[in-house]
């Protein structure tokens, strides 16, 4: 017998719990009733849609379908990362796309094919949750790193140019600022690793436990995914920051800040 199933009646009961929040909102005049209802409905609809997409991909079990879905996920994540920075430049969406796709694709495939030895390596039951978790976390790192480097170039132009006037190449001039951006991008996942399991049970481990795995198996999966995420953040932040430098300096070592737009 598998784990218990959440049926329609159960979901309805869970939804009725939201009356607590609605009641609070009415009582304290928070004006949140509408937003609460819309958000709850969106969560239900979006996740049902996701399930509807995943079902056929899991049952067809064809590499083209799995890889196609992964590409769509990368596309959405890349777009979201590019939207979260305070400044942008033409082509930045491509940079985040490649940075995140490269990092997540590489680590997810190493995880499924090489470490879990899934057969085939694109087995959707492993690859898709891995890619999803890795993308969700690299999103934060890449957008933070990118935002930090763009802000620094914009605000510290005179320092960067002074260093270049003294003979530095763009790379040499920007080294401290690249280090800062990379550190900022990597810190959240490093912090997450160091408190993993102390405050909350992490998402993947929770899922494994609910799915019936033993705690020690679930813990191993969680450690694996944390390491994969961290490596993906490293690749993603590195690619995004370095490519950004290449695109904002021209061949004559000039910082072309007019390519930046604020928003």
């Amino acid at each position: 017998m598998g784990p218990p199933v959440v049926d329609g009646w159960g979901l309805g009961l869970a939804a009725s719990l939201l009356c607590i929040n609605a009641g609070l909102s009415l009582w304290l005049r928070l004006g949140l009733e509408r937003a609460l209802g819309v958000a709850a409905l969106r969560a239900a609809v979006q996740l049902s849609l996701l399930a509807m997409v995943l079902e056929p991909v899991f049952s067809i079990a064809h590499p083209a379908a799995v890889v196609g879905l992964v590409l769509v996920m990368v596309l959405l994540a890349g777009r979201e990362a590019a939207r979260r920075t305070s400044r942008s430049y033409a082509g930045m969406g491509w940079v985040t796309l490649v940075a995140m796709g490269g990092g997540a694709g590489l680590t997810a495939v190493i995880g499924t094919g090489w470490i879990l030895r899934a057969d085939p390596w694109w087995e959707p039951r492993y690859l898709i949750p891995f890619v999803g978790m890795i993308l969700g976390n690299t999103l934060t790192g890449v957008s933070l790193g990118l935002d930090t480097v763009l802000r620094a170039l914009d605000e510290q132009r005179s320092t960067v140019e002074l260093r270049m006037a003294l003979g530095a190449s763009p790379w040499e001039a920007c080294r401290p600022l690249v280090a800062d951006a990379t550190r900022t991008g990597m810190l959240p996942i490093v912090n997450a690793m160091s408190v993993a399991g102390l405050v909350t049970i992490p998402g993947m481990m929770t899922g494994q436990l609910l799915g019936g795995s033993s705690p020690s198996v679930a813990a191993r999966y969680q450690v694996l995914i944390l390491f994969l995420i961290t490596a993906a953040v490293g690749v993603g932040v590195g690619v995004a920051v370095i490519t950004t430098l290449r695109l904002l300096f021209d061949a004559r070592w000039r910082l072309r800040l007019e390519r930046l737009t604020h928003r």
Binding site: Q156, R157, S158, T159, L162
Partner: peptide, 10 residues
């Protein structure tokens, strides 16, 4: 080039 003293380097 000696720019007008602007930014503060590290």
């Amino acid at each position: 080039w000696v720019p007008q003293a602007g930014g503060a380097p590290w």
